[in-house]
Amino acid sequence: MIIDVDPSGAVPVYEQVRTQLAEMIVTAALPQGFRLPTIRQLAADLALAPGTIARVYRELEAEGLVVSRVRHGTVVAAVPERHLADPTTAVAAAARTYAGASRRLNLSLDDAIAALREQWAQLSG
C-alpha cells in the first residue's frame, strides 16, 4: 500500500494524504486492525511536518475510520455503516476535494465539469 503526495499539486498535501487513506479504508484495501505507520515515519517519508500527519489521523479518527490507542498506535477501525451504506456521502467527499482543487486552479465550473466528463468517458470506454 503506497501513498503518493505531490506538493506542487492543486490539492493540499494534507487533503491528498487524508483522501488516499480514507479511500483505502472504505474500500477495505486496508483491512480492519491494520496498524498504520507512526506519525513520525509517514511524515519523514512524505517530507511533511509531523503535525500534518497527526491532523490527518485525528480527522480519520473523527470519521470513525481509525482508532488511536496509546502504545498500539493508529489502527484501522471497522468501517462505519454510513460509509458503506451511503455512497452519496463518499461521492460528496470526493466531489468536495475535486471542487476545491478546481477553484484553486481558477477553473470555471464548466471547465471542471468538462474535465470530469472527459475522465468519466475514459473510464467508461
Binding site: 500500500m1 503506497i2 501513498i3 503518493d4 503526495v5 505531490d6 506538493p7 506542487s8 483505502m24 486496508l30 491494520f34 496498524r35 498504520l36 505507520p37 507512526t38 515515519q41 509517514l42 517519508d45 512524505l46 517530507a47 498506535g73
Partner: peptide, 13 residues
C-alpha cells in the same frame, strides 16, 4: 535525495 513528489509505504518499519 528523492524528488519533490513523494511516496510512502504504509508498512511499519
Amino acid at each position: 535525495t528523492p524528488g519533490a513528489r513523494r511516496a510512502a509505504t504504509l508498512e511499519r518499519r
